[in-house]
Computed example of a mutant assay.
Amino acid sequence: MRMFRFALLLLFVVALLGCGAKKPPRVATGEDIFTIQGATAVRQGPCALLTARLEGAVERLDSVALRVEDMTLSCPTCPFQPRERYVYELDDPRLNLANGRLELSYCGLEGGREYRFQLEGVNELRGVTPGISQVMAPGTADEKTP
């Protein structure tokens, strides 16, 4: 009986050691990230045309999310608080990506209202931080943009 208890205890210890906490593999993020640079927005009537440069592992781009803030009061220094988020898949006709240059068209703006935007590049590797642009307030098509 004593030998049975010892064997059972030994089996329990081996099972306990073999079932240690395991974590998912870590992604080598240095070579798998991209950034969004130089993002601008131009308002064209009820639409906005957003452009940006993607740098880094552009081939890892899975989709692009557009965050939209409809500003009730004109306050360019207030914190960005988007209330809407739209996801554009790479095959969406409103999105164009060529040679690291991203162009995205968003329609649905109301006249007389001000908006701010932010682009989020979603990485195909889910553990990697997305590329996020600066917050943009659109100029109009006849304004000169830097």
Rank of each mutant, 00 (worst) to 15 (best):
Y86A: 11
G38D: 12
V128S: 08
D70I: 15
S105E: 08
F80M: 11
V128G: 00
P76F: 01
V128D: 02
G100Q: 07
P46R: 15
P93Y: 12
G121I: 01
T35C: 08
C107S: 09
P76V: 09
L104N: 01
D62E: 14
D62M: 15
Q118M: 02
R94V: 13
E103W: 11
P46M: 11
R94Q: 15
G45I: 00
E59S: 12
C75H: 10
C78Y: 06
G127K: 09
N96D: 09
Q81C: 12
G127M: 08
N123E: 07
N96F: 14
A48P: 06
L119Y: 04
E69Y: 02
G112F: 09
Q37H: 15
Y86D: 09
Q81E: 12
E31C: 05
L104C: 06
G112L: 03
I36S: 00
A39E: 01
F34C: 07
V42N: 06
L125N: 03
E89Q: 15
C47I: 07
E84P: 08
M71I: 09
A57C: 06
E31L: 07
E120Y: 05
G108M: 01
V68D: 01
T77N: 05
E84C: 10
R43D: 02
Y88T: 01
L54D: 00
G56P: 00
G111T: 07
L95A: 07
G45S: 03
G45D: 02
C107A: 12
Q37D: 10
V87C: 03
E124Q: 14
E89N: 10
G30M: 07
P93L: 02
L109P: 00
T77M: 01
Q44E: 05
L104I: 05
S105T: 12
R101V: 09
A48E: 00
P93M: 12
T129R: 11
G45C: 05
G38L: 12
C75P: 11
E110F: 10
E103F: 04
E55F: 10
N123H: 04
G111P: 03
G112Y: 02
S105H: 10
E59C: 15
F80C: 06
